[in-house]
Design a protein around this nucleic acid. Structure first.
Lengths: 338, 338
DNA sequence: CTGAAAGCGCTTACAG
DNA sequence: CTGAAAGCGCTTACAG
């Protein structure tokens, strides 16, 4: 790291002069043009980079607390918008003075991104999408700042959850109430245990009902995955009469496949999805999509609220809060008329 | 701002002791339990918040440069995912040591978010979605750090652009080549001059062709807006035989309306949209959507590249680069068979 | 068990 | 036109 002092030493000037010129105030402070040029050249040559921490500290600037949001850098990046929207709403409404940093990481490699050193450079952390391995890392280490986990369970950290059991239970109950017989499930590989809970509970609940055992197809968590999975289902005899998808992406791909195969929804097959995507998209796809609605924005807001409280009161308690995941009936699986 | 010094003074302890306890090392350093308790209580009472700038500076930690991304906090938040994806790719591929901060702002109020003070707390800035008013603010002020504008024109700042003329030209030419007669346009209120360029060029190019004057309907930039706008078009006699939409959201809403009205795409009406959304979504909607593809990810990468160069070479030149916006033919407006 | 001292990199008010 | 000195808030190695 080249510092102002280094440049000053090399040019036999004082740090003050170098600072003034580098800040762009050379002319105003009447530093000789030639001196200015020498300083700029040296800065370039020596690869000088201003240290903003020092600037901020020196100026007693920006009491803004830094909140780091850890988000996995895979397909799930498109869910980040909804989460960020929730954070922004919380920031606006509560007039939080936060600087929000996005830290990407890869599943099973949280430890590379969330180091003890990186923890020293932030005030509080929201961790989203950790895998089981990542969770083990979190449980095994101590970070001395407030951390909240989104949609994970832990006795060590504050968590903001949804009830994964309900997410699996609701569609099974609805299909049963609709008198369906041949259930199907399009699921993607579980990236955390909650996903297994959802699908296991669905399969269990179905097995407790008058329905047959569900046909489960493992697909990629994408529209393409859902499309291909649904094509597989179309070849079955009998055709499933109801389908649960573990994500919006999968469901939207499936809708396309059914459309192409001229399979009518909901008449021939009812579809319910985990509502992870944009509600607007669920409303305007063809047909509109019934979902177990995940309140991402509200949960994001809650994460920030917890951290704000922690920072304000200078105490951190591993609270846990669970958000409801209501069923939103749309065309793909309408509510029964009572 | 309560500091460690303040707490030490109040309790008649040294700053060292307070620091040790607050950092959670009290037990290891064998500070008396009672002293620890007194310190924690005082910190809570006095509203102590650790100053991370000081921590970082002191520890010579994190040479990570801070890049601030200014993004408007309205509907366009859902486009942020694609942009962030591009940034993350750039960070991973080039192993950039950047801390990325997201700064929300409201159009016409960039000046409230991008203050001279806020500029001191970051190393470089990417500004997205500024309105005309915001642009005036940018042109009228000097910030002494590298700034790059996404999809705007300026002689003062580096810019990363797409060619708005092409975006308007292409669909008009394609519709003309397809022998269409009755063009329509669903557009949302322009949030920057480039949007007017797109629609004006489309309307002009259409008027130069054998087609009739286009029917232009102003709608909200959302699926609902597109849906309602398309319903209006459905009432026209004759029905338009081709439609240009200024965003994916609008187009997806329009597809739904046409589906409900049993209007066949592309047979009765061809649809081309500005491809601002997720390509996967464009492929799996019904029918799949032909678009003028906007390379958001590539442009985001380029923004970061420019800033990285600026920071490395300690010089900032207002370069300008324009990215191609190729036509991607899908079901809603297939390519002519040659 | 606790404290005095030095220093991270920068800027600014003051002096000359 | 340029420099010497102080200080932002914190932590750590050392001393006692």
């Amino acid at each position: 790291m080249t510092t102002i002092k280094d440049i000053a030493a090399r040019l036999e000037l004082s740090p003050s002069t170098v600072s003034i010129v580098l800040k762009g105030n050379g002319d105003r402070r009447k530093i000789k043009k030639e001196t200015q040029q020498r300083i700029m050249n040296a800065a370039k040559e020596m690869g000088y980079k201003p240290n903003i921490q020092a600037k901020i500290l020196r100026g007693s600037l920006s009491a803004k607390a830094n909140i780091s949001l850890y988000w996995v850098s895979d397909n799930r990046i498109h869910l980040l918008s909804r989460f960020l929207k929730g954070l922004q709403i919380a920031i606006m409404e509560n007039n939080y003075q936060f600087q929000l940093s996005i830290v990407p990481y890869e599943n099973n490699h949280l430890q590379d991104a969330l180091t003890q050193e990186s923890v020293l450079t932030t005030n509080a952390i929201i961790i989203c999408n950790p895998s089981e391995t990542d969770m083990e890392y979190l449980e095994a280490n101590d970070f001395h700042i407030p951390i909240v986990l989104y949609n994970r369970y832990s006795s060590k950290y504050a968590t903001v959850n949804m009830d994964d059991k309900t997410i699996g239970l609701l569609p099974a109950d609805i299909f049963a109430a609709h008198g369906k017989k041949h259930p199907a499930l399009l699921k993607s590989p579980a990236t955390f245990s909650g996903m297994n809970i959802r699908t296991n509970v669905f399969e269990f609940q179905v097995s407790e009902s008058a329905m047959e055992r569900p046909v489960s197809v493992m697909v990629e968590d994408s529209m393409k995955g859902g499309y291909l999975g649904a094509l597989t289902l179309c070849d079955l005899n009998p055709l499933p009469d109801c389908l649960f998808c573990t994500s919006d992406s999968i469901a939207l791909g499936a809708l396309k496949a059914f459309y192409e195969k001229k399979i009518r929804i909901p008449e021939q097959i009812e579809v319910i999805s985990v509502g992870s995507g944009r509600p607007e998209q669920e409303e305007y796809c063809i047909p509109s999509l019934s979902v177990i609605s995940l309140p991402l924005e509200d949960m994001a807001e809650e994460c920030l609220k917890i951290l704000s409280d922690s920072l304000t009161n200078f105490k951190y308690t591993p609270t846990s809060i669970t958000f409801p995941t209501p069923y939103v009936a749309r065309q793909s699986c309408p509510a029964l008329i009572q």
